[in-house]
Design a protein around this nucleic acid. Structure first.
Lengths: 337, 337
DNA sequence: GCTGGCACTCAATAATCCCGAGTGCCAAGC
DNA sequence: GCTTGGCACTCGGGATTATTGAGTGCCAGC
């Protein structure tokens, strides 16, 4: 592809993203030093349109990039736009205040939404090597208990159980049994151990079964299937119409399953780097009008993904670098514990 | 005030809420059986306008209720609109699935947003009689500990602490000390007990001080200052302009302090019932274009508030009864544990 | 292969017209 | 003294038309 044509495409994308209005040949030569006249640019643009990188909303209007155009722009033109020093500081200080993983995820998603001014999504980090650290049983009242599960990544889960007439000794005994059954094990193994325990001779299943089941329920909770979303108000920033642009995104955001698959797919395609899905490249039809910018994050055996959803006419260089930077910082933060 | 004039005001409010368009005398006699002619209605409407209950957006247009008009409507006319059976079932089943307080708050706020199709806000319930139930210390790795605090309402808080070279015996000992210091106590008393503990002879402050401080930090976390918001997308439902209607609400929702005060004020004014703040009655200026419908909820010594924010032209009867119903159901749910 | 020139297109803006919903007022009627 | 039908009047908003100008494609000349 012609050197100048690439430059023209880049200029069209940049201007369109900035103004959100079709850009014409004259405006282009004025705003960019292309060294040729507008007539030449017109010819180039006509060719770019033939090749499917640009379209005219209507005759006698400027050009707008197509998904294909954005794609080429992202692949060949988008130079990484380094974050400003204040932005780096903001990321760093925002995240360093996090007190636990839960807090970190929430801080991250808000940070990302604020940085990119778009809708941000963060998946809970999941450690393939997480092990159960402790099971605790606490009496709340005469017949209500709270069963608590803690894993090596400081994740805590709780589940209420009703059990009449229990003594502190009983609970203490049960606590020991449970901890020796699941302590240090991975969730799957711990679950198997509990299944064995239920049928073990001498175990009072009728009485303590519910507690064991509570633990098994919590073991089955997979944090990697949780995600947090922020920045929905940013959707309104674009004058986009409710029907065509906002509703589909809102719907998609409700469907955690869909989002998880989208994130997973994107990450799988370009592991280790920021991956971009533009408009129709998206496997989920209602989001054909929007783009995803996704990255995985984590360290060692703890990995998950994060990203943003926005209009195809987003500022890719900035968004990509923001997503990348946040992913790196969060990874580093996780590594430091 | 004249019987018929009240009826006219009510009809104007109802029609305006339904259509969002100024309502005229003719449409009024057609849609409501008022038993008089449009000319008479015109006279009544002119008087209502003089008295400040209605306004004309411009000459030769229908009338629109003022804040004062809505106020009279709410105070004197709004008959409680009972919820439909399906709605009751929805509330009941939606809430009964809640597994703990945290879950319940989230379910409640989503339920309320869905029911009223507006932005819902729920404050975390706070029990003035909550007592500390248990302190647990769990080792995560050789130098990382997790300190966990559980109270009688099943609320769990966690805090990470770094402590090199600790033995299981040490921790066990410390656990006993801490639990006997705070167990069964209210947060304030527990905090005092820990303050004493820190200066007690024989306590290795240099070594265990950070753990005690972690507990004290958690004791200071006041859940009543937390709130959850849902239904922001509903803001877009009204064709309201971004600048005048949406931005102020979004801003307000970011300011937890403001929201807490608004909820508190509203509840304080009408304890025990649903209170309504219409437009300019609102002490917070940016929300002068919106109304709040708020109720307290809880049982015994556990109380908090919940409510919705919406345009002044909301459907007050439905909204009020939805808020009331949800508040009652949640209160009942809390009472049942 | 680039450029200036030129005729052409067409969305968006402005200008204009027109309609009818809605009003206020009044005189007549119950 | 209310209520009512009648009537002249107002004026926002929708439809229609005119105007503008940014932008294009094409072409002949450099």
């Amino acid at each position: 592809m012609d050197e100048r044509k690439l430059k023209v495409l880049g200029a069209v994308v940049t201007d369109y993203v900035a103004t959100r209005e079709p850009v014409g040949s004259k405006a282009l030569v004025e705003r960019h030093s292309l060294g040729v006249s507008s007539a030449t640019i017109r010819n180039d643009m006509a060719m770019l349109e033939e090749e499917g990188y640009l379209v005219q909303p209507h005759t006698s209007a400027g050009r707008v990039p197509t998904d294909k155009g954005y794609r080429l722009f992202v692949d060949r033109l988008a130079t990484v736009k380094p974050l400003s020093a204040p932005e780096r500081r903001a990321i760093s200080s925002f995240l360093s205040g996090a007190v636990d993983v839960d807090d970190m995820v929430h801080r991250t998603v808000r940070l990302l939404a604020q940085l990119t001014r778009q809708v941000a999504i963060v998946q809970y980090p999941v450690s393939s090597s997480a092990t159960i650290r402790h099971v605790e049983i606490v009496g709340l009242s005469s017949d209500r208990l709270l069963v608590i599960l803690i894993d090596s990544t400081a994740r805590i889960d709780q589940y209420p159980v009703t059990l009449s007439e229990h003594s502190e000794e009983e609970l203490s005994e049960l606590r020991k049994i449970l901890n020796s059954a699941v302590g240090g094990r991975k969730p799957v193994d711990a679950d198997a151990a509990l299944a064995d325990l239920l049928t073990a001779p001498g175990f009072d299943r009728a009485r303590f079964g519910p507690i064991v089941e509570a633990v098994r329920t919590m073991l089955a909770n997979d944090p990697s299937e949780e995600l947090v979303v922020a920045g929905m108000p940013n959707l309104m920033r674009y004058g986009a119409s409710y029907e065509t642009a906002i509703m589909p995104v809102l719907d998609a955001l409700e469907e955690q399953v869909v989002l998880l698959r989208l994130l997973g797919d994107a990450v799988a395609e370009h592991p280790g780097e920021v991956s971009v899905r533009i408009g129709q490249e998206n496997p989920y039809v209602p989001l054909h009008g929007t783009s995803l910018v996704v990255s995985e994050y984590g360290f060692d055996e703890v990995w998950a993904s994060l990203g943003v959803v926005g209009p195809t006419s987003m500022d890719y260089p900035s968004t990509i670098s923001a997503v990348r930077a946040v992913a790196r910082y969060v990874g580093r933060f996780l590594a430091e514990g």
